[in-house]
Design a protein around this nucleic acid. Structure first.
Lengths: 241, 241
DNA sequence: GCTCTATAATTGTCAGACATTTAAAGGTCT
DNA sequence: AGACCTTTAAATGTCTGACAATTATAGAGC
């Protein structure tokens, strides 16, 4: 066996099994040996095996079923599960490492621009309807800043989905959702909301007209404006402190 | 407490603690209660608590230290840890869900194009040197297809890093690395490698000249060419089957 | 042939024990 | 006083054995 001395058996066993799954030596829905068999195979107690399996379950690599003919099975990772993992990890990464608003904003709009040409080509009526519905919501007075940001993310998600590429949707929508806590730092005045709604409308109109160039222009202005709003907030905070 | 009946105590306990971390109720490097204390607080056995903690450790949310004054601590998620998680999850998602080469290819180059303008502006000598080194390697005869693809990914990574935005690097490099198994399906003839090396050189030259437009053009041609190579492979496979 | 029940396999949980690691406290010598 | 060693206590890591809960299958009874 390749089990090096690591002084954390459950981690080592989890790694062995994880490698087997990632490298395709175990296939989706294949059943792992029972906990008792695994403990014999690896020469450890059942508790240790269980801790290893829980590690894998936390990464959605396996699912377990109780009862006779139950056990642990290699799990087919769904977009939904992977998406959730991605968002949790990315969110923590950003908040714990004090990523600046400027950096997050730049990354976000760079990724949005990556979808714009595809979205302009492939958007369908549903995508446009979703975007217009979110724009409508953003124009409602009395909306909290958090809800405004959430709607902003939803609109972005529609833009990304309009590109018609599930891989792009998974990667970018997750990334943007993870940035929401950072975006939430902005306080949106009535005036700035008006401006953003206008730019969102221009973006949606551009997609409706299959015009990638106009869509990109709208995104550029949106980035510039969002950035200036963020900088205002920072400056105000700095003055107070 | 908000612990609903879920009939998997360790998952529920893990969720409670995870929420506390994600919502900021527990700060980085803060120490969790000992396993004995947790088992008392949650009213479960120590084994159950341990299984919950292993789940969190698998997501790199906590780290544990043995010995006196040891215990479980909220872990500052590093870019490296998050990156590894992202790649594992994304890789499995793509392979298990049979994402088509076309979809992966499109997503990849869409994301590369997102970085090109920033990279053209900010690339430094190191980035250019890395890219040229990878190009040199790609021109070596006798390189396996896998190594060629790996070098391709490394070159891409340099491009993304050249954009000078760590969030972008984390998200996009992880996404592209996850696509490597799919890209590995292509068999590269000497002729096609020559073509790709030429396009890579044009891309690097464009960045060296701070020319975003030329860089984007090179990426577009690269995408078109990669896609045609992939389609050839598929067609040949279909004929054989 | 259908329904119900018993069975056996398997995971989930618990209790208690011991091994191992590690930082801090205390003691000894110079 | 300071440097070095030893002890100690707190904590995680691992093992053992037991029982509870769940569930598909096989068999009994009609």
């Amino acid at each position: 066996m390749k089990t090096e001395k690591v002084s954390d058996l459950s981690a080592q066993i989890a790694k062995d099994i994880r490698d087997a799954i990632v490298e395709g030596r175990m296939l989706v829905d294949e059943r792992l040996p029972s906990e008792a068999e695994l403990s014999e195979q690896f020469g450890v107690s059942r508790s240790t095996v269980r801790e290893a399996l829980k590690r894998l379950a936390a990464q959605a690599l396996i699912r377990t079923q109780r009862g006779a003919f139950g056990g642990a099975f290699v799990n087919r990772l769904s977009y939904e599960e992977a998406y959730g993992q991605n968002v949790t990890t990315s969110t923590l990464l950003l908040t714990m490492n004090a990523v600046s608003f400027e950096t997050a904003c730049e990354a976000r709009y760079a990724m949005e621009r990556a979808c714009a040409p595809l979205a302009a080509e492939r958007r369908n009526a549903d995508h446009l309807a979703t975007m217009r519905a979110e724009i409508h919501r953003q124009a409602q007075p009395g909306l909290s800043d958090e809800s405004f940001c959430a709607s902003d993310v939803a609109l972005h998600r529609a833009l990304v989905d309009a590109a018609g590429n599930p891989v792009l949707s998974y990667q970018l929508a997750g990334a943007v959702e993870a940035m929401q806590p950072l975006m939430n730092m902005i306080t949106f005045t009535a005036r700035s909301r008006e401006e953003i709604v206008m730019l969102h409308t221009r973006l949606t109109d551009a997609l409706a007209a299959n015009d990638a160039v106009l869509a990109n222009k709208a995104l550029n202005e949106l980035e510039k404006y969002t950035l200036s709003l963020g900088k205002d907030v920072m400056a105000r905070r700095a003055r107070k402190a």
